[in-house]
Structure formats: C-alpha cells, structure tokens
C-alpha cells in the first residue's frame, strides 16, 4: 500500500519541555486516520509539524512524499487543512470564499469557475452562491469549509477537530462527506474529541504525554484493551497521563 505519511522518531522540544516525544507512524493512501489524545498530549504540535508550520527538533517526516523539514513548501502545496473554527470569511459570499481559497493553492481561474459550479451542485448550495457565509447555518458552514479544504484535490487533508460544537446528526452527515472524499482517493488525517467518531476511522492512534501509546484499528484496540467501545479504550490510556491541562 502507498504511504502518504511516514513519520520516524519525530520530536519537538520547547526548551526543556518535550511536546512531541519520538513518535513514529505511517498513514496509507485513502485511509481515514484518527489522531486522538487528551488536551495537551501534543496532538496540535504534531499536526503543525506535519503541515510544515513548525520545524521538528529531531526525527524525520515525509508527507505526500516530501520532507516536512526541508520541503515544507511542497508539503503545503499537497495538503488541505480545515480548522475547528471552519475558517471561512463571514463577510464574503460563498463563491468568493471558494475562489479565494482555490486561488491560494494556485488552481487556475477557469477551473475554479467550473469546479465551483460542481461543488455547489453537489452540496445543494446553488441558491446560496451569492449569500454571505455569516447567513449560513453552522452545519452548512462546516460542509463548505471541508469542501474548500479539498477543493484543490490534495493528497491528504488535515482536519483539526472538524465537528466541534455540532450536533450528532450534522456530525453524521459531515462524515458522509468525508467518506465521499476517501472514495476519490483523498487521505483523511483527523483529530477529534468525540469517541463515536473514532469508531468511524480506519485506524486510530492515541497520544499520551507526547508519545503514541496505541495505534490500530478501532476493533483491534477494543479487543486489546478489553473494552466495549473506543471511549473505554481512551479512558484507560488517558488515565496514565502525567501531563494535564491544569
């Protein structure tokens, strides 16, 4: 299987504090990879390194075949990113947001126009083309933000708690969009706090105190930890943590 992310002993230190402590893992093409961990476990730092935002202290990482340390520009070109805030411009119209984000990834103008039509049609947003984003319901914004993040057909899309503050039904619908994207060969790298969502992932890693303490399919993890569901698995691992937010 083709590897889209390869990480070996990736480490990030801030002074004496080791935020990410020698993590190693691989993510395969078309996979939904769940990246779990309590607050402060080092998830965000790890993800920022993978996105080429933060240079690692040591270790090696390849994302979409490019070195995250030396080729961060190429890494950035081949990934998509959606933050927990849905990061759309509220005072811009729907199509203006799409065009703007398409533009920063260098999608040609005529292609942007063509793909915008397709996208609005697929989401059923044709009537909202000229609406301001602030007038859309939260679930719609979320769908739009995700569609914008994969507009330039990246190899991998990083989703940072994409379903925060959204009700379970809307979350479920959002996951349908994620499955659609994997059908098109896009790899999903997702962090979440919702353990029901962890069940939807192909494989899940759980970070504790900067290390990856568990990495397997949800079923295998449940067997290994003699747990009914992912929540129990997570609780067992997170209880060992020495670092807490407070």
């Amino acid at each position: 299987m083709e590897k889209v992310i390869e990480v070996q002993n990736l480490t990030k230190k801030f002074g004496d504090f080791t935020a990410v402590d020698h993590i190693s893992f691989e993510v395969y093409k078309g996979e939904i990879f769940g990246f779990l961990g309590a607050n402060g476990a080092g998830k965000t730092t790890a993800m920022r390194m993978l996105c080429g935002l933060l240079p690692p202290t040591s270790g090696k990482g390849l994302v979409a075949g490019f070195d995250i340390h030396t080729q961060s520009e190429e890494v950035k070109r081949n990934i998509g990113y959606m933050s927990q805030k849905f990061a759309l411009y509220e005072d811009l119209k729907v199509w203006e947001n799409i065009r703007l984000y398409g533009g920063i990834y260098g999608v040609p103008e005529d292609e942007i126009i063509k793909k915008t039509d397709e996208l609005l049609k697929r989401l059923g947003f044709e009537k909202e083309r000229n609406s301001f984003v602030k007038s859309l319901p939260l679930g719609w914004k979320q769908k739009l933000a995700f569609s914008v993040a994969i507009f330039h057909e990246p190899k991998i899309v990083f989703l940072d708690e994409p379903t925060g503050g959204v009700d379970p039904i809307t979350r479920r619908k959002f996951w349908e969009l994620i499955y659609e994207a994997t059908d098109r060969g896009i790899t999903i790298f997702v962090t979440t706090h919702y353990m029901d969502e962890a069940e939807y992932c192909d494989r899940v890693s759980i970070m504790v105190d900067g290390r990856i303490d568990a990495l397997d399919t949800p079923n295998n993890l449940k067997l290994q930890y003699h747990a009914q569901n992912m929540n129990e698995v997570f609780q067992q691992l997170a209880r060992k943590a020495k670092r807490t937010d407070a």
Partner: peptide, 13 residues
C-alpha cells in the same frame, strides 16, 4: 481570532 490566519499559513501562499 477567526482561525482564517491558520488556514492561510498552512497554504502555500
């Protein structure tokens, strides 16, 4: 504040 800066920074822009 709105998180758009983060998205811009992750982009090649």
């Amino acid at each position: 504040e709105f998180g758009t800066m983060e998205v811009l920074l992750v982009s090649p822009f």
